[in-house]
Design a protein around this nucleic acid. Structure first.
Length: 426
RNA sequence: GUGGAUGUAGCUCAGUUGGCAGAGCGCUUGGUUGUGGCCCAAGUGGUCGUGGGUUCAAGUCCCAUCAUUCACCCCA
């Protein structure tokens, strides 16, 4: 270690940026509460096997992006690269299904993946998300999607669009992959190298390729997965669409939206930020009816989404949605010297106890400097405290926003501050 | 893991054919013996990412290295 600095791909949330996180978090809590979701918090590290089994051993995340290490007992542990597996583990471990037939959960926390950083992608990043565990019905999918959209609307974000698709049940998907392979076989030579490699593995990934030639071939010759679903899958998808239509959520049906982690079944969806760079997925999710069973839990259907905090902040910054928020300080006490400070200290403490936000000068600066500082901090009221004020047990409360001043007895101060304060007693 | 771009003051950036390190903003102080903003003035602040090399002389040219960043891969 030469210079002390953050690890590649990690960032400090600086004191003058943290308000952005707090604003988003408070809106999230309100939205989740309105939809009756409960928060779940799980540890940031888990046994490696959880992710290997839950996410899929051959997925990129597990095979090359995890922070895995051995503890002193020789156990292989991993910093969580995603949260759905952890929530599923918690569900199984604590037998949630014994408590109630349906659980609606939300989470927010840091995740870790060892990738090359770029715009909208860090090695430590944060996701919030929800999981509805227990319902196989399309109304659960609809609620999850509608809730995701609600979050972005509630935050005032405009430049995004919802993409939905269905990749069907396991059987329908296997069937479709054979059909796709057969349809593309004659055009195989025109595909790029990676696509030719994937041809015999997960052929669905060919939809993701950004090579223009591959895109042309897929568009011309690949049959749509929606045409090859089982009748039950189709019914589920149509019901979802009806629900979305009923609540006025516009969406794009995107047959190429086949990605995601190994555990998805039927519904997949994504919310794309239309003003972002290459990393434009604000939110991704879908149904995962098999995950909990695959982790040796009870056969339990589930649907959810995960959304990136950092990308959301990028998108909101691009739309100028973070106003310069003041700290809402009620009063700035500017003592003329240390003796005056000592004498007003009990008053300051008493006001803070009642919940007023009071800034007290700690640098022994000049009156002019203190006033300047108070102005910079957008404090509502400021009081210079010298010998006169101590003798009369009153102070001139100067309203920095209205530019007037009124003499106030010490025990009247609260009443004046109440005109503008948003205090809550502590 | 692959490819491109960029590293100069706290921030955003100038810096000419190689010739004494700059601006704006910010911050501090002063212009008022106890009163902010606007204005004016002064001040603070840089091992020029790091290590080698070429040269009388390197922020500038060469090599290496580290970091940041954008894109690929993949994903939130």
């Amino acid at each position: 270690m030469q210079k002390l600095r953050t690890i590649k791909g990690t960032h400090d949330i600086l004191p003058w940026e943290s308000h952005k996180w707090q604003k988003i978090e408070s809106v999230l809590r309100e939205v989740f509460a309105a939809y009756a979701y409960k928060e779940v918090r799980t540890p940031v590290f888990e046994y490696t096997a959880l992710f290997a089994r839950g996410v899929g051993e051959f997925s990129d995340i597990v095979s090359k992006e995890m922070y895995t290490f051995e503890d002193k007992g020789g156990e292989s542990l991993t910093l969580r690269p995603e949260l759905t597996a952890s929530v599923a583990r918690s569900f199984i471990q604590h037998n949630y299904q014994q408590e109630a037939p349906l659980h609606k959960l939300w989470y927010l926390g840091p995740l870790f993946r060892q990738e090359r950083p770029q715009a909208g992608r860090q090695r430590q990043f944060h996701q919030f998300g929800i999981e509805v565990i227990g319902s196989p019905h399309p109304e659960a999918d609809a609620e999850v999607i509608e809730l995701a959209c609600r979050v972005y609307r509630a935050l005032g974000l405009r430049n995004w669009e919802l993409h939905i698709n269905s990749i069907g049940s396991i059987e329908a998907r296997k069937n479709y992959m054979d059909i796709l392979r057969a349809a593309l076989e004659p055009h195989k030579d025109g595909l790029c190298d990676t696509c030719r490699e994937r041809f015999h593995g997960n052929i669905l990934r060919l939809f993701d390729c950004k090579n223009p030639e591959c895109g042309r071939i897929m568009k011309a010759h690949a049959p749509a997965i929606l045409d090859h679903l089982s009748p039950e899958d189709t019914e589920h998808f149509n019901a979802l669409r009806n629900y979305l239509d009923a609540v006025g959520i516009p969406y794009v049906i995107d047959p190429a939206l086949v990605r995601g982690l190994d555990y998805y079944t039927r519904t997949t969806f994504e919310i794309k930020g239309t003003a972002l760079g290459a990393q434009d997925a604000l939110c991704g999710g879908g149904r995962y009816d098999l995950l909990i069973r695959d982790l040796d839990g009870p056969d339990t259907p589930a649907v959810g989404f995960a959304a990136g905090m950092e990308r959301l902040i990028l998108a909101m910054d691009a739309e100028g949605l973070f106003e310069q928020e003041s700290d809402g300080l009620d009063l700035y006490i500017a003592p003329m010297d240390s003796r005056c400070l000592e004498k007003v200290l009990p008053l300051v403490t008493a006001l803070r106890e009642k919940g007023y936000r009071v800034q007290l000068e700690l640098l022994r600066r000049s009156v002019k400097a203190m006033l300047r500082d108070a102005n910079r901090q957008q404090v509502q009221w400021v009081a210079v405290v010298g010998e006169q004020e101590l003798e009369k047990r009153s102070m001139n409360l100067k309203n920095l926003r209205e530019n007037d001043q009124l003499e106030t007895a010490w025990d009247e101060i609260g009443a004046v501050l109440d005109r503008t304060s948003k205090r809550k007693p502590i």
